[in-house]
Write a protein that binds this DNA or RNA. Structure first.
Lengths: 200, 200
DNA sequence: CACTATTGGATAGTGCCGCTATCCAGTCAA
DNA sequence: TTGACTGGATAGCGGCACTATCCAATAGTG
């Protein structure tokens, strides 16, 4: 497959493919001459993955690069792979507002988590915004959300393949990122349904 | 409160406040002279809300403007307000990939939803990305996520205040947007906990 | 063998977004 | 009077994700 066909099949413009090649997001094709390279299935899959991370996951290219590096060169520890995925999903806000709110929720849930992780800061910032807007943000008010998070996370972790390390890393990193938009879209649709049936 | 104090209290630079005023995101202060205006609590709250929608919710300013317009001038129907919130949360991708996958899930859940809504397209795109990456995306595989979405959405809709329409609209719009980052952060922390306890 | 289309590679430019910087004249408090 | 501050206007900036152009070297076509 030449670059023009790769472009046609994937729907990504040639100029953009060249850009991804330059940026090292897409591995170079097999050179078959000075002015020709051959691309295959892996290139197409990679290209689709990049677009998915960008368009569906909303990641900037710099984060996509980190994620791909992790998938290409899997770390020994799955916990570390999870960290890469979480790092890619939005940086921690500069101000550490709401750390106390986050701490209360985490303590209430009995979780063993890293207080320096981006997710913890994100929870704090999100809860502080909630409080500012007049919503309750205590452990009691968030009970449902915590329960849902625990249900999903334990099932997800249980589903991690134990055989192949590379496959497990891929599962953890991509699953963490790609299921987020699914969860959000489902919540919105469920709200739509609930709204249609009970609010008119 | 003068603009400098508003800036100091909120942590937003004066130049940025002026920019928000120009853009109509922040209402003008009470003019007390040709070169002086008085700002109050509402301005501070509005400013914090803008920053929350941008920093925590990740909305572009154009969407923030729409959300604020909806809150300022509440529509008669809560269903319509929910639509505004959903519209603000990421536009539908151009290609309508995965519509069949989304349809299967929605039908499986028995939801009554608008197939033309952004959330439906987002679900399709997210599921297509999942399939591309080798993950299962059928109704059975997504059962947990659907269940979590239903639990949360029905509770949320049930919590909508019935007394004041303006308060209800604000609850729906802001709640829809501001609880998303909370849910995502909680899932990540729960994953961290599950990973730490069962994967080492 | 001529010719056209395509390619890899390099470089520069574009469009959007969210600010940020500068300037200015008016004004308020000390 | 003086100096800090303000509203208002305009222009510029930095980052990001492309996009456009050019070039010399082919590869396939007739």
């Amino acid at each position: 497959m030449r670059i023009s066909e790769l472009s046609r099949t994937s729907g990504v413009p040639i100029a953009t493919i060249k850009y991804y090649l330059r940026e090292g997001l897409l591995q170079a094709g097999q050179a078959t001459g000075a002015t020709r390279s051959e691309y295959g299935e892996p290139h197409l899959r990679r290209l689709r993955l990049i677009r998915a991370l960008v368009d569906v996951g909303g990641l900037p290219l710099a984060k996509v690069r980190e994620v791909l590096a992790c998938v290409d060169d899997p770390p020994a520890s799955l916990h570390c792979a999870l960290g890469t995925a979480h790092d890619a999903l939005g940086a921690a806000p500069p101000d550490a507002r709401g750390a106390d709110l986050a701490e209360a929720v985490v303590a209430g849930a009995g979780w063993r988590v890293d207080r320096a992780s981006p997710a913890f800061a994100q929870l704090g910032a999100a809860l502080a915004a909630l409080v500012d807007a007049g919503f309750p943000a205590g452990p009691a008010a968030l009970e449902r959300y915590v329960r849902a998070a625990v249900d999903l996370a334990t099932a997800e972790v249980a589903d991690v393949p134990r055989t192949d390390t590379a496959a497990a890393v891929q599962f953890v990193v991509l699953g963490t990122i790609l299921y987020e938009p699914v969860l959000l879209a489902l919540r919105r649709l469920a709200q739509q349904h609930a709204s249609a049936t009970t609010l008119g």
